[in-house]
């Protein structure tokens, strides 16, 4: 079903999968199954989780050839995000980094202002910066200017599984920003992932919905299919959807003669 010529390009790197899998909240042995069934090529991981001596390190459960996208979760400001990103690079996690700056423990809402600052610093240092943000068009433009490689607006509060609560605002970013827009956080069902793809986002990221599913591997596969279906629909061009009733069969301008 996947079109191998339809590439997702982030920071010069090409991917054929448009489904990014989060690696938090799992039992470790399920991560591999989720990646395999999702056919995901990019996996996010919290550096705070990878930075451990414990017998089970998440890094050992991620298959070869999958691109790591370390995130800066735990950072409360730009300076902390920058330090976590540098630590991630030192630990051999590569140049990709997903900026998460959160100073709200209840809703875990990203701080757009600090995110822009961190993006600017890290982009200059050669990181491929993928900032997680609250979908605000002005912030998205600032992130482009700061050197971001993609924009990652949230669909609804993280972990809420509520779907595309911010749909209209994400649509503005999709329409106005030329970088890949990746919907991140709040996607609870494959149908919501499909809907996001239909509206033209470049990729979808999900974690909780899969990590806490009854059958992790099957749900990972369901998301993969949903993302691919949504992408196909977008590329095919959606049929017209009328906002207010049906189109009049006798057009108002039918009286014109010459």
């Amino acid at each position: 079903m996947r079109n191998e010529n339809d590439k997702l390009i982030i920071g010069g790197h090409e991917f054929t999968s448009r489904f990014i899998l989060g690696s938090g909240k799992y039992s470790m042995e399920l991560i591999k199954a989720a990646i395999t069934h999702a056919e995901a090529q990019i996996i996010t991981l919290a550096l705070r989780r990878a930075n451990t001596n414990a017998g089970e390190n998440i890094l050992d459960f991620i298959p070869e050839g999958v691109t790591l996208l370390p995130n800066t979760s735990g950072a409360r400001n730009a300076a902390e995000a920058v330090r976590i990103a540098r630590l991630s690079r030192e630990m051999g996690c590569g140049d990709f980094v997903k900026i998460e700056v959160i100073r709200d423990s209840r809703y875990l809402m990203p701080d757009n202002y600090e995110t822009i600052k961190a993006t600017e610093i890290l982009a200059k240092e050669g990181f491929i910066v993928m900032p997680y943000m609250y979908p605000d068009l002005n912030t998205a433009r600032d992130l482009v200017n700061a050197g971001a490689a993609s924009i990652m607006p949230l669909a609804s509060p993280i972990g809420s599984n509520k779907g595309l609560c911010t749909k209209e605002f994400i649509k503005m970013i999709v329409d106005e920003i030329s970088l890949p827009v990746i919907v991140d956080a709040g996607i609870g069902r494959p149908s919501q992932a499909c809907e996001a793809m239909e509206m033209g986002v470049a990729a979808v990221m999900a974690n909780t919905a899969i990590a806490t599913a009854g059958d992790v591997a099957v749900m990972a596969g369901a998301f993969k299919n949903a993302v691919e279906a949504g992408r196909m629909a977008y590329l095919a061009g959606l049929g017209r959807i009328m906002d207010k009733g049906a189109s009049a069969s006798s057009p108002l301008t039918g009286f014109l003669e010459d």
Partner: peptide
């Protein structure tokens, strides 16, 4: 079926 986690934070 749960995941033991030894560390949830990174000091930077």
């Amino acid at each position: 079926g749960l995941q033991p986690v030894m560390n949830e934070y990174v000091y930077v």
